[in-house]
């Protein structure tokens, strides 16, 4: 009954090439999306600061809620098919994927970090104020590092969650890991084996990410282990 034929995947060097290349594309795009999303996320966080104009902070809030309460696939299709038509400007599928991932992650990032910021005790801000630091310095030197440290675990799991949905970018023609898998499955008709292999690859990449996040954690937040 169980007639596994994984060799149907390794047999063709082209299949292996495609899968490896797909891995690379997936990793590259989600890493880039993660980093850009972080930057945009920080912008969103500061736009929600107490001293920023109501309109701006309202806009940031609305943006975050919109992204968090709609599926990634809809955002992706809008960015890939809607926006170019609207702006009369075409760009590559990879660019669309990257943009969608950036926009998506930035909202989750901003939400998590904002929660982290509001959990910083007021004593920290008062102490910094009494030392004559300006509002901006207090935010950048005191509040943000501590907030990032506190929410780091949720940030990384949020990123992993995003990574696990990136397979959807194959739907707009980006040749990522999922795309490579479907390419192979369409040719050797071993869908089950192919998707098992794909799953293993995704899980392996997640492990890689987690190892990197752990190392980064120790490097970036050396004070954490002590408390």
């Amino acid at each position: 009954m169980f007639d596994f034929r994984f060799y149907e995947i390794w047999r063709e060097p082209e299949y292996i090439d495609r899968l490896l290349h797909g891995c690379l594309v997936s990793i590259e795009l989600s890493t880039a999306g993660g980093i850009l999303g972080m930057i945009l996320g920080l912008v969103l966080v500061s736009a929600q600061g107490k001293s920023s104009p109501k309109l701006l902070s309202g806009f940031a809030q609305g943006y975050i809620e919109t992204v968090r309460n709609t599926p990634f696939i809809v955002q992706l299709f809008f960015v890939a098919f809607g926006l170019p038509q609207l702006l009369h400007y075409r760009w590559s599928f990879e660019a669309s994927a990257l943009l969608a991932m950036t926009l998506n992650f930035s909202a989750y990032f901003a939400e998590v970090v904002r929660a982290g910021i509001s959990s910083i005790p007021t004593g920290q801000i008062e102490a910094a104020g009494s030392l004559c630091l300006t509002k901006r310095q207090i935010f950048l030197d005191i509040v943000l590092p501590q907030a990032l440290c506190n929410v780091y675990p949720s940030l990384t799991s949020q990123f992993v969650f995003l990574f696990l949905t990136t397979g959807l970018i194959s739907e707009i023609g980006v040749e990522d890991l999922t795309w490579a898998g479907r390419f192979v499955a369409d040719r050797n008709f071993r869908d089950f084996e192919v998707f098992i292999v794909l799953t293993v690859l995704y899980v392996a990449i997640v492990f890689g990410y987690k190892a990197i996040f752990n190392a980064l954690n120790r490097y970036a937040f050396p004070w954490r282990s002590i408390r």
Partner: peptide, 9 residues
């Protein structure tokens, strides 16, 4: 297992 992979599998 990514949800997408579950769906495919």
């Amino acid at each position: 297992i990514p949800l997408l992979m579950l769906l495919f599998l």
